[in-house]
Nucleic acid binder design. Structure first.
Lengths: 146, 146
DNA sequence: GATGAAAAGCCCTTAAC
DNA sequence: GTTAAGGGCTTTTCATC
């Protein structure tokens, strides 16, 4: 596949900052015609560099104000795929990171309140292969589009 | 402010799944007129439930295959705002989580390679207030829309 | 306070080059 | 990569419940 050029990179940056910018608008920024921009963006999606477009929702404001990380230790027979399965099985798990080092995985959690967190951690600890956890509370966080 | 109803929640779910869906399209899904949908979405943005719209870019495929976390310890005089400033100052920092507990903050990092990671961690360690770090390498991760 | 209808203008998309 | 054109979408205004 053709490598990305500077125009593609500019388009990525612009669409990362505002995923709803119009092709007409983007065309002006990169000094290209509208159809040319559309073809480039379509291609970026097709090759998977752009996974998709999404609304960034503030879950804290919506329904899950509490955020935490849970470091997990698994027994030696557990595969990375089994660890990643936590994301599929528990809706409170936003992400699972399989680690090299001390702990085997890191779970990013979002919950309604402490009782909910207690319940989720209990479910994690009851998961096959999990032999230990260490939970870290998040007091505040920053991310999303710059 | 008016609390969110089921239509708002439906719109959020739809826009999370596809941030570029048209208002006309959304209107069909929630059985409302186009202007009504636009007003609701504008309101969700205005009140901050929708932080913004973005293209989800696969940085691993693009230019930063390596992912890591860096746990940070700060001296007692450092404010949470100062910790969060790392996200603004270092482009390799995807997110900063201010923690309650052992470490003071957790940085999510994305880098090109090990040399790049070494450089970023060095910059973190050279940051005012940082007195200790512990870096965790990510071997694989799962997240994004289910 | 929120909605629907209508209209003008802009945007998207396709086709042709 | 460009231009051109049709159709669709967005956005504003205004009347309504």
């Amino acid at each position: 596949m053709t490598p990305l050029d500077d125009v593609d990179r500019k388009l990525l940056a612009l669409l990362e900052a505002d995923g709803r910018r119009t092709f007409a608008d983007l065309a002006g920024e990169v000094a290209l015609s509208q159809p040319a921009v559309k073809r480039r963006v379509d291609r970026l999606v097709a090759v998977g560099v752009i996974i998709g477009f999404t609304a960034v929702v503030d879950r804290a404001r919506l329904d899950r104000p509490l955020e935490a990380f849970c470091e997990l230790r698994f027994q030696g027979t557990t595969s990375p795929e089994d660890m990643e399965a936590l994301r599929r099985d528990l809706p409170e798990v936003e992400a699972v990171y399989v680690l090299a080092g001390d702990f085997d995985a890191l779970c990013h959690l979002r919950v309604r309140d402490m009782a909910h967190l207690r319940e989720v951690v209990a479910r994690l600890r009851a998961t096959t292969g999990v032999v230990g956890t260490k939970t870290l509370m998040v007091m505040s966080s920053v991310r999303g589009p710059r």
